[in-house]
């Protein structure tokens, strides 16, 4: 056998069979992509790292208590009912602020998207108010409304308002003009045009606004609760800080992270349900 034929038989086998490590990586990659646990890998790795650092004593409990101390704190707060009450209060504030601010923003965004007159009348004003950092209003809001529920509702609603408004307006304005013309030529009434063409066309953009708004909602609420409240997760954290209960402070932060994730997941499910037609939102498990 000459060396040339030897090489010829060798080369294809190299090409056909990649080295074992490469094959392993490729299978592992595919597995990672498919698994539902994959998104949780990084959070759990961080948790493990945290536990290890605490367990070996490299992380001082005054700086960051170990995870089990947080769990203990959570357990005792659950037992005395304080945690559930505080979460319920914060959640109610968040939702009502979101509904009020988001609702008004949605209606005004639609109105300004559909009517040039309405836009001329109100858009400049909205844009001016939008550029005031809403948290800078806290002193004024406290002077006006005290530290009662109205202050929190006002701040949260105001924070939620702008992302929903801007994206609803943008969504309505960027609906494909060709589709609107088609609808007109097929005799749709103005209401039908809105319901069947404009609103569904604006929906992806509206959802972007809603997801932004949820982030702003928590941010505003936490700050408001930290500064001026007698209940809620933010209040719990502030109180704990005064008594140097680092574990409770961390617990409050983790609860915010969890609540944020819950809100985001809810919107994602809503997106999937209403935007099933959209290739980018179709459920990868049900579409072909």
């Amino acid at each position: 056998m000459t060396s040339a034929t030897g090489l010829a038989t060798l080369v294809p086998s190299i090409a056909a069979e990649p080295p074992r490590t490469a094959r392993f990586l490729r299978t592992a990659g595919r597995g990672l992509l498919a698994s539902r646990l994959t998104p949780w890998l990084v959070p759990f790795a961080l948790l493990a790292l945290w536990a290890a650092a605490s367990g070996t004593g490299r992380l001082s409990p005054q700086f960051l208590p170990p995870p089990w101390a947080i769990a203990e704190a959570a357990w005792s707060k659950i037992l005395d009912g304080e945690l559930a009450a505080n979460i319920a209060v914060s959640f109610r504030r968040a939702i009502s602020g979101f509904l009020v601010g988001g609702g008004i923003a949605f209606l005004l965004g639609l109105a300004n998207g559909l009517s040039r007159l309405s836009e001329r009348l109100t858009d400049t004003t909205v844009q001016m108010i939008r550029n005031i950092p809403n948290l800078s209003l806290i002193p004024l809001v406290i002077l006006w409304l005290g530290i009662g529920e109205e202050a929190k509702l006002f701040l949260t609603a105001l924070g939620v308002f702008f992302p929903v408004y801007v994206n609803t307006f943008h969504g309505v304005r960027t609906v494909d003009a060709g589709l609107v013309e088609m609808g007109r030529s097929y005799g749709m009434t103005r209401f039908e045009l809105f319901r069947r063409v404009i609103l569904p066309g604006a929906l992806p953009s509206i959802f972007v606004g809603v997801r932004f708004a949820l982030g702003v909602m928590w941010l505003t609420l936490i700050v408001a609760e930290t500064i001026a409240a007698s209940s809620g997760i933010g209040h719990m954290a502030t109180e704990a800080r005064e008594f140097l209960q680092v574990d409770v402070v961390v617990l409050a932060i983790l609860i915010y992270a969890a609540l944020g994730k819950v809100a985001d997941t809810t919107v994602r499910l809503l997106e999937r349900a209403t935007l099933a037609w959209h290739p980018a939102f179709a459920d990868p498990r049900t579409s072909k």
Binding site: D176, G178, E181, P200, L275, H278
Partner: peptide, 10 residues
């Protein structure tokens, strides 16, 4: 029309 102009959500 030149383009189909179908409603993508229907």
């Amino acid at each position: 029309f030149q383009e189909p102009r179908l409603l993508p959500w229907a």
